[in-house]
Amino acid sequence: MSLWLLFINEMKSFYKSKVMIVLWIGFPVISILLHYFQVGSEEMPVFALVGLIIASLGGTLATVILSTSIVGEKKEHVYELFLIRPVKRRNILLSKFFAVYSCLIVATVVALIFGFVIDVITSNIALSVMIKDTLKSVAISIAAMSISCSIGILIGTLSSSIALAAILSIYIGNQLSLISIMPSIFFPELDPLVFSIIVGVVATCLIWTLIILIFRRKQF
């Protein structure tokens, strides 16, 4: 009950935030540009590149947004009024995670569908191949962004300075999120879909275990 309420609460703010509006427009534009200029190569197909860029850009933004907003809310003692009510500590953070993550997923899917439609119209590639590649890109992006969002929450939980949280998010968060993508790019024999999903789920679970343990001990 409390998780759903808090999720709706966070969603109301995030989906219409300036950052999200940029992503709603920016992701499809990136997708169109990449397809238009055909920057892909045999080693890195366009779909993988779209997934990589969207996951990287969206992931960085998500990490920064989440970490700085949590530090800000900790500083302003926002959580005290939630914690004196029947709200589990972890639900405060999970609601943020799900709100930001679901907005990113929707933006990513919209961007890739955009690219897919353009490809269907303009290219000669078989439809079944395109659908498979699009789904691959979606899965890779979603897995990487799951790690990014979790790292954003972890940095926000640990840091007490907004500036430090932003710097850590940019320099560490983004790089770590790419662990789900890089191996399948450099080792083509690995199935990128399976590898991304496994790494994404495992890394997200590990980071969340750490977050819950740390946040449980926080004194408000």
Partner: peptide, 16 residues
């Protein structure tokens, strides 16, 4: 269960 009988005005707590 304490929240049912208790109302708390904190010194510093902010709102989103």
């Amino acid at each position: 269960d304490i929240h049912k009988i208790l109302g708390y005005l904190p010194q510093e707590a902010g709102f989103q």
